[in-house]
Design a protein around this nucleic acid. Structure first.
Length: 457
DNA sequence: TTTTGAGTTGTTCGA
DNA sequence: GTCGAACAACTCAAA
C-alpha cells in the first residue's frame, strides 16, 4: 500500500509533518480545485502554479516521479486517485479556513466510504486554532493575553523527514494553465520574493543574517526600507513553515510577535467563520457605510490625491504586494475617510495580494474599521500626510510608485498641494478633505455608539 | 461574584 | 519642538 500526501498549503518538502508521518511509499498529490482557482486573485493563482512547478522539481530531485496534479473537486479526486494508486491513507496538513474545513470534512467522508483513512498530521501554525486557551478553557478574544500564553508555550522544533516518493505516477490531468513539466525559466518574482521552498529559505536566511530581523522592531514600519521579512506569500503557500522561521530568527525578536498574530487570527476565524465577511461585533452593522462605487474605484486606482495612499494602492496593483504599514494607511482611508465598507477593501486585497489570506486579511480590516474584537478605538484615524512623513520621511516610497510626483524632492512628495509644481505632471487633486472626512467619520461612529447605549438602557 | 488592571500599529490640542 | 492629556468609556481576563 501507499500513502497519498495531499498538498494544499504546505508546498514544501522540509519541515513538513504530513510527509514526516508517511511510512510507506508516497504519492504526492495536488488537486487544482476550480472553485479555488477562480476565487483566488490572478497574482495568487500565478504564484500557486509557480510554486507547484518548484515543488514538482524538488520531488524529482529527491528521486520521485514528480507531483501528481489532478483537476476537479477533491471530493471526487481523492477517492479516485486512492483507487488508482492503491492508497489506504491520505495524509494532510490541516487547513483551518472556513472553506478548507468544510472541504476536508466532505473529503474525509468520501474517503471513508472507500475505506481510506484521512489523517491530519501537521498544521501551518506554531500553535494551531483551539490550542491556546484561557485559564477556564475558553478562547481568547484579546491579543495581549493570548500572546502571554502563546509565548510561554514551548517553541515547536522543525520536523525531519525522508519520504520515499513513488517512481511511477498515473498521468496528470492538466488544465491549459497548469504547470508544465518543463516550465519556462522566467518565473517572475511576484511581489515579496522569488517562488518556492529554496527561495523562501534564501529569503529567510537573508532576513535573519543581514540583521534585518534584529532591526525589525525599528524598521518594519518604514515604507522606504526593506525592513519586513518578505515571507508572507511563502508562509501563505507553506513554502516554509513558521517553525523553520523561528529556528532562524530566534525566539526573542519583535518578529515573533507577528507570527503570533498569524496564529491568533487563525484562531479567531476558526471559531467565528462568519468573521470573514461580517462584523465580529454585530452592533456595528448600523454603521452608515456609503455606497459610492465611483469613490471606491478611485481608491482602487490609486488616484485619491493623497500620495502615500496612492503609492500603496499602486504598489499593490503593480507588484501584487503592499507594505504592511501602507495596508493600514489605505484601509483607514477607505473606511474612515471615505466611509466605504471594509468588505470592499478586503475583497480587493484578496484579489490582488500575493500573500492574501482570509483570516489575517478580514480580521486586519475589521481591526482598522473598528468592527472586530479587540479593535482599534474608533477615534484612531490615520492622517495620511503624517503617516507618510513619519514612515517615508524622504518621500522615496511615494516617488517610486507615483511617477507624477517623482519630480518633488524629499518629503515635499507628501504635500503636492503645497508645492508650486505639485500638479504639473497630472497628479490628481485630493478627493476628500481629510480633516472634514475625519470629523464625519467620528460623527458616524459616535452615532452608532449612542444608538447602542440607548438600546441597552 | 466582584474587583482590578489593561488594551498592536493615532491624532490633535494646548501648555 | 515637545510633552501630556483627551478622545470615552467598554470589555476582557485573571485574581
Amino acid at each position: 500500500m501507499v500513502d497519498i500526501v495531499w498538498f494544499r498549503r504546505d508546498l514544501r518538502l522540509g519541515d513538513n509533518g504530513a510527509l514526516a508521518a508517511a511510512d510507506q511509499d508516497v504519492v504526492p498529490l495536488f488537486v487544482l480545485d476550480p472553485v479555488l482557482l477562480t476565487s483566488a486573485g490572478g497574482v495568487r493563482r500565478e504564484r500557486l502554479l509557480a510554486s507547484l512547478r518548484s515543488l514538482d522539481s524538488s520531488i524529482r530531485e529527491s528521486g520521485g516521479a514528480g507531483l501528481l496534479i489532478r483537476r476537479g473537486d477533491p471530493v471526487d479526486v481523492l477517492p479516485a486517485v486512492a483507487g488508482e494508486v492503491g492508497a489506504d491513507r491520505v495524509l494532510v496538513s490541516g487547513d483551518y479556513s472556513p472553506f478548507g474545513l468544510r472541504r476536508d470534512r466532505r473529503v474525509a467522508e468520501a474517503l471513508s466510504v472507500a475505506e481510506v483513512a484521512m489523517a491530519s498530521r501537521d498544521t501551518p501554525y506554531l500553535h494551531p486554532p483551539a490550542t491556546v486557551r484561557k485559564g477556564d478553557g475558553g478562547p481568547f478574544s484579546v491579543f495581549t493575553p493570548y500572546w502571554r500564553v502563546w509565548s510561554g508555550l514551548s517553541v515547536p522544533a522543525p520536523v525531519q523527514s525522508s519520504p520515499r516518493f513513488v517512481t511511477r505516477l498515473p498521468p496528470d490531468d492538466l488544465p491549459s494553465d497548469a504547470p508544465s513539466r518543463h516550465p519556462p525559466s522566467d518565473d517572475r518574482s511576484l511581489g515579496d520574493g522569488a517562488v518556492g521552498e529554496a527561495a523562501a529559505l534564501a529569503t529567510l536566511t537573508g532576513f535573519a543574517d543581514s540583521g534585518a530581523a534584529a532591526r525589525y522592531d525599528d524598521d518594519r514600519n518604514r515604507l522606504d526600507l526593506p525592513g519586513t521579512s518578505q515571507l508572507g506569500a511563502a508562509l501563505h503557500f507553506g513554502e516554509i513553515h513558521p517553525r523553520t522561521v523561528l529556528a532562524h530568527v530566534g525566539a526573542d525578536t519583535a518578529f515573533v510577535r507577528q507570527m503570533c498574530w498569524r496564529d491568533f487570527y487563525a484562531d479567531v476565524l476558526y471559531r467565528r467563520p462568519d468573521a470573514a465577511w461580517h462584523n465580529v461585533d454585530r452592533r456595528f452593522d448600523a454603521l452608515p457605510w456609503r455606497d459610492d462605487r465611483s469613490q471606491f474605484d478611485t481608491w482602487c486606482a490609486g488616484r485619491t490625491g493623497y500620495p502615500v495612499v496612492d503609492a500603496g494602492m499602486r504598489q499593490l496593483a503593480q507588484s501584487g504586494w503592499m507594505h504592511n504599514r501602507a495596508r493600514m494607511i489605505v484601509a483607514s482611508f477607505l473606511t474612515k475617510d471615505l466611509l466605504l465598507p471594509w468588505q470592499w477593501g478586503a475583497r480587493w486585497f484578496l484579489d490582488h495580494l500575493v500573500d492574501g489570506d482570509v483570516a489575517s486579511n478580514s480580521l486586519g480590516w475589521q481591526w482598522c474599521a473598528g468592527t472586530g474584537m479587540d479593535p482599534s478605538p474608533y477615534y484612531r484615524i490615520f492622517n495620511p500626510v503624517l503617516q507618510g512623513e513619519r514612515f517615508d520621511p524622504d518621500g522615496a516610497y511615494v516617488r517610486r510608485w507615483v511617477p507624477e510626483l517623482a519630480h518633488l524632492p524629499g518629503r515635499a512628495a507628501h504635500t503636492p498641494w503645497d508645492q508650486p509644481t505639485g500638479y504639473d505632471h497630472g497628479y490628481p487633486r485630493r478627493m476628500v478633505d481629510h480633516a472634514r472626512a475625519r470629523d464625519d467619520a467620528l460623527d458616524a461612529y459616535r452615532a452608532v455608539k449612542a444608538a447602542r447605549e440607548r438600546a441597552t438602557t
